[in-house]
Amino acid sequence: MKNSLSVLSILAFSFFLTELSAQHFNIHNPIVLPDKSQQSTIIQRIGYTDITISYHSPGAKGREIWGKLVPYGKVWRAGANENTVFTITDDVHIEGQKLEAGSYGLHLLPEENQWTFIFSKNHTSWGSYFYLEKEDALRITVPAVNTDEKKEWMSFDFDHRGRDGASVVLSWGNKRAEFNLSLDIDQIALDNIRKQLRSDAYWEWFSWCQAADYCAEYKINTEEALQWIDRSIALRENFSNWDVKAKLLTQQGDEKGAEAAIQRAVEVGDEIHLERYGRRLLKQEDFDGAEFVFRQALKKNNSYWRAHFNRGNALKGLGKKKDALKAFETAIKYAPEDRKAQIQNSIATL
């Protein structure tokens, strides 16, 4: 009987300890503590495309990094804690190879003189412990170079930024490597522009003008851009949309049509747009054309001091110093006080 009571007492005590242990290690509501390897996010927008890298940044803390803390020949998570995540909102090319829009686990296979960046379709796992090669979306290998300055904290950065791409740099300790990223900026832009023109922008002359001017600036999609600018003109003609049409027709080689378009732009333009156009001609050293445009601006507003001032600059370029002096003197008459000294300096150069 005593033995039976002893066994029951032991079992009861064991149950109590088990319950106490379960309560002690209840992790349903853990608290959040500061990360030793700080969480970092870097975002670069190229055109409409966002490239985001989310990672935890470990510190060197006096340790030898490459070949020691991070072994050569072994897949590493390119950071600390959970996956480093590489996200792109449009298709891109990494070192010439296509990578579709989406999120990827970014891993690194380092060697002494070259690093292989691995983009895995699995981006939700912890570090590289669950990495599977069969889940690779892309691998690219680039040179790893030594640096003079040791970097304490591992970091990703964007470098060599251009209109249609950038390079992504990983650096830590005394080494760094980078890979090039590029995208079809024109196609992505045109797709986005077309979508926007099917929204409220459809009813705005300025939206169609913006879209056409983008094409004119980069000399793309000229045929469709001419349709867009005609839509803008139909909604409300003004200097801006006729000016864009002139640019597009010039790119098509239609010089006669372009000349007619710019003449119409001058006819319907206000003094501010005409003065700006005249300055554009001044930069091109088309002094005759600029002087004519400034005169047209003054027909619309004879007290516009900027038009008098820049007409003086055009006349100066034509060698007509007396006429230039008259234009400058008229500009002083209408100019605000803080601009009169600028005009006086121009008179002095005569």
Rank of each mutant, 00 (worst) to 15 (best):
N241T: 04
N313T: 05
S346A: 15
I272N: 12
S9H: 03
Q38P: 12
S9E: 01
D200I: 11
D164V: 03
A324Y: 03
D338P: 11
E259N: 13
I262E: 02
E237Y: 04
Y218M: 01
F156R: 10
L8E: 08
G59H: 09
W115V: 08
D90N: 09
A22Q: 10
S207M: 05
N302L: 01
I42W: 01
F86S: 10
G312H: 13
K320V: 05
L8G: 01
P30N: 10
E217C: 01
E178L: 08
N83K: 10
P34R: 13
L183R: 02
A189S: 13
E223Y: 00
G47H: 09
W172R: 05
S199C: 06
E217R: 11
G105L: 09
N146S: 14
R311Q: 15
E149R: 13
N146G: 15
T41H: 02
K245P: 08
F13H: 01
T52V: 12
W66E: 06
K150S: 14
D184L: 07
T222M: 08
A258C: 08
E224M: 02
R45C: 00
E224V: 12
L108A: 06
V142C: 01
D164R: 03
E275L: 07
R264N: 15
L181I: 15
S4M: 10
A307S: 15
S240L: 11
K321L: 14
T49R: 11
F13C: 09
W153A: 10
S103K: 12
A78Q: 05
N180K: 07
Q187F: 03
T41G: 07
V268Y: 00
I94C: 04
S120Q: 06
N313F: 02
Q97R: 11
M1L: 06
R77N: 04
S40Y: 04
G162W: 02
N301D: 15
K299Y: 06
I185W: 07
Y202V: 13
G73P: 05
Q251V: 05
I262L: 01
D230F: 00
N221S: 04
A265E: 05
W205H: 13
D35S: 11
G62P: 07
A331W: 09
G79P: 04
R139D: 08
I140P: 07
K151P: 00
G257T: 03
I88T: 15
E133S: 15
G79M: 00
W203Y: 11
V142Y: 05
L8A: 15
N122T: 09
Y55P: 09
F179S: 02
K219H: 10
K121C: 00
L17Y: 06
N192P: 00
E291I: 04
A177C: 12
G253S: 06
T124Y: 14
R264V: 01
N192V: 02
F16P: 02
W76F: 12
N192L: 00
E64R: 13
F292T: 07
A258T: 04
L248W: 00
L8F: 13
A327N: 06
T52I: 14
E111W: 03
W76G: 08
I94Y: 06
N241W: 02
T116W: 06
A201E: 10
Y218K: 07
I43T: 10
D136S: 00
R176V: 11
G96A: 01
N238L: 03
I42Y: 05
H123V: 01
